[in-house]
């Protein structure tokens, strides 16, 4: 199941664990990424809390946690090579994995059609 936030994060659910990243639209708007600050494994975040930071040449941007949860894994490869988020935002450019605390929050997120609609 693939879900989106209006803030341009995506979330792909596999059982209890969700993989989180930023959308192609987001990476395009940010431009070339040069630094990623990932959360610590084991950290817990509430929905909407800043969980990671990505930085382009010219600006830093917060990445919000799409739902409440605990970080179970982070993508060390993008920390080494932030440009992966630009080249493959929906797959190899994932940021962190999250053990979801409350699955009902997923209902409040956008599906792909809904996300495409807000991009206009």
């Amino acid at each position: 199941m693939l879900k989106f936030t209006k803030d341009h994060e995506w979330l792909r659910l596999d059982g209890e664990v969700a993989t989180v990243g930023i959308t192609d639209h987001a990476q395009e708007q940010l431009g070339d990424l040069v630094f990623v600050d990932l959360p610590t494994v084991g950290a817990t975040f509430e929905q909407g809390a800043a969980a990671a930071v990505v930085e382009s040449v010219k600006a830093a941007s917060d990445i919000y946690c799409p739902v409440d949860g605990e970080v179970t894994e982070v993508n060390e490869a993008v920390a080494q090579e932030p440009g992966t988020i630009n080249s493959d935002p929906m797959a190899a450019g994932w940021l962190f994995k999250l053990k979801i605390a409350d699955k009902s929050q997923l209902d409040g997120l956008l599906d792909e059609a809904g996300y495409k609609a807000i991009l206009g």
Partner: peptide, 17 residues
């Protein structure tokens, strides 16, 4: 995702496009 800082010449930048 929210841009929380801009640098240098691009300060004051609005939404792209």
């Amino acid at each position: 995702m929210t841009q929380d800082g801009t640098a240098g010449e691009t300060a004051g930048e609005g939404t792209a496009q």
